[in-house]
Amino acid sequence: MAHDIVFFLAPDDESAAATRRRGPGQAFDSVNCHFKEPDSAIAEWDMYFAEPSAEIPPIEQLLAWPWPEWVTAPLNDGVEVFALPPRLIRALADATSVELEELADRWTARLWSADGDEMADDDLLAVLQGVSRLAASAVTTGGGLYSWSF
Score class of each variant (00 low, 15 high):
Phe150Asn: 13
Glu44Met: 10
Ala136Ser: 10
Glu37Asp: 12
Ile56Thr: 04
Asn32Pro: 00
Ala54Tyr: 05
His34Gly: 06
Asp12Leu: 13
Gly143Ser: 09
Pro24Gly: 07
Ala91Met: 07
Arg133Cys: 03
Asp115Phe: 13
Glu44His: 14
Phe35Ile: 07
Ala41Gln: 08
Ala138His: 10
Arg110Met: 08
Met1Thr: 11
Leu128Tyr: 06
Ala83Trp: 06
Asp94Val: 02
Val131Lys: 06
Ser113Ile: 02
Cys33Asn: 01
Thr140Gly: 00
Val6Lys: 04
Asp122Cys: 14
Ser132Cys: 07
Leu92Met: 14
Ile5Gly: 04
Ala50Thr: 13
Ala114Phe: 07
Leu84Trp: 02
Leu75Arg: 15
Pro57Arg: 12
Ala43Asp: 03
Asp77Glu: 06
Leu124Pro: 10
Arg110Phe: 12
Ser137Asn: 12
Gly142Ser: 00
Ser147Thr: 11
His3Lys: 11
Thr141Gly: 09
Asp121Met: 10
Ala41Leu: 07
Gly78Gln: 12
Ala95Asp: 02
Ala41Lys: 00
Ala16Val: 11
Glu55Leu: 14
Pro58Ile: 13
Phe8Gly: 02
Leu63Glu: 13
Ala93Arg: 04
Gly25Arg: 02
Thr96Phe: 06
Phe82Lys: 07
Trp45Tyr: 08
Ala104Gly: 13
Asp77Val: 08
Leu75Ala: 14
Asp13Cys: 06
Met1Ala: 15
Val127Lys: 00
Ala104Lys: 07
Ala16Trp: 12
Ile59Pro: 04
Ser149Asp: 09
Thr19Met: 11
Ala43Leu: 11
Ala126Lys: 11
Ala10Cys: 08
Ala43Glu: 03
Glu60Lys: 13
Gly116Trp: 10
Ser149Arg: 04
Ser147Asp: 12
Ala50Phe: 09
Val71Met: 06
Phe35Gln: 08
Phe35Leu: 11
Leu84Thr: 14
Pro68His: 03
Trp65Leu: 01
Arg22Lys: 10
Pro57Trp: 07
Ser53Ala: 14
Met1Tyr: 09
Arg22Leu: 02
Glu118Phe: 05
Val98Tyr: 05
Leu103Lys: 02
Ala10Gly: 10
Ile42Ser: 00
Ala95Arg: 05
Ala2Val: 15
Pro57Ile: 02
Ser147Pro: 09
Ala50Glu: 15
Asp29Ser: 14
Ala73Cys: 09
Leu134Gly: 05
Thr72Leu: 15
Asp115His: 15
Lys36Trp: 15
Ser147Asn: 02
Arg90Cys: 09
Ala41Asn: 01
His34Val: 04
Leu145Thr: 00
Trp67Asp: 03
Thr108Ala: 06
Glu80Met: 14
Thr96Asn: 05
Phe8Arg: 05
Ser113Tyr: 10
Gly23Ile: 04
Ala95Cys: 11
Ala135Glu: 08
Glu118Ala: 09
Trp45Phe: 14
Trp107Ser: 12
Ile5Tyr: 11
Phe8Trp: 08
Ala120Trp: 07
Gly23Arg: 05
Leu100Cys: 06
Gln26Leu: 10
Gly130Phe: 02
Leu125Gly: 01
Asp77Cys: 07
Pro38Asn: 14
Ile5His: 05
Asp39Leu: 07
Leu9Ile: 05
Asp29Gln: 15
Asp77Asn: 15
